[in-house]
């Protein structure tokens, strides 16, 4: 419980309702600090690309919030972040159904299976059964 006059210390800056940040990482640092001060009943609304949204969700969960306490709205690019299930390397900015893993070089098929914890879709080697047996590349996630 906060009592006393600490809030009366004059701030050199005017009260802001809109904050600018240098980057999404910068914003997330501030967000984590802010959530640590918040109380039950707080709601968070975020809009942005999928990767950003799940970073925000991760910060919310880490602060003890549940799914009912934040709302995410996707806007902008539908690019996917891919987790290579074989070598565990992430490949960012994927717009196609197939992608070369930036870690092990396998041709990965991009599944619709998404992990919020890893903030990534799963990729597995498309031609693991028969080398070279693959499907046409299509741009699906722009």
């Amino acid at each position: 419980m906060i009592e006393g006059h600490s809030r009366a210390i004059p701030s050199p800056l005017p009260e802001e309702t809109v904050h600018g940040f240098r980057s999404a990482s910068h914003l997330l640092i501030a967000l984590r600090r802010r959530l640590a001060q918040e109380h039950m009943g707080f709601r968070l609304y975020a809009a942005g690309t999928e990767g950003f949204l799940w970073d925000v969700a991760g910060a919310c969960e880490a602060a003890g919030m549940g799914k009912a306490e934040y709302r995410l709205c996707h806007s902008g690019s539908a690019q996917r972040r891919i987790f290579c299930v074989h070598c565990r390397t992430m490949t960012d900015g994927v717009t196609t159904n197939l992608v070369t893993c930036s870690g092990c070089g396998a041709q990965l098929f991009v599944r619709d299976h998404f992990s919020r914890r890893l903030n990534a879709f799963m990729g597995f080697q498309i031609d693991a059964e028969v080398p070279g047996e693959t499907i046409p590349v299509e741009e699906l996630y722009r």
Partner: peptide, 9 residues
């Protein structure tokens, strides 16, 4: 009491 509980309570 309920208003001052931290997130995750």
């Amino acid at each position: 009491l309920l208003s001052r509980q931290p997130l995750g309570t």
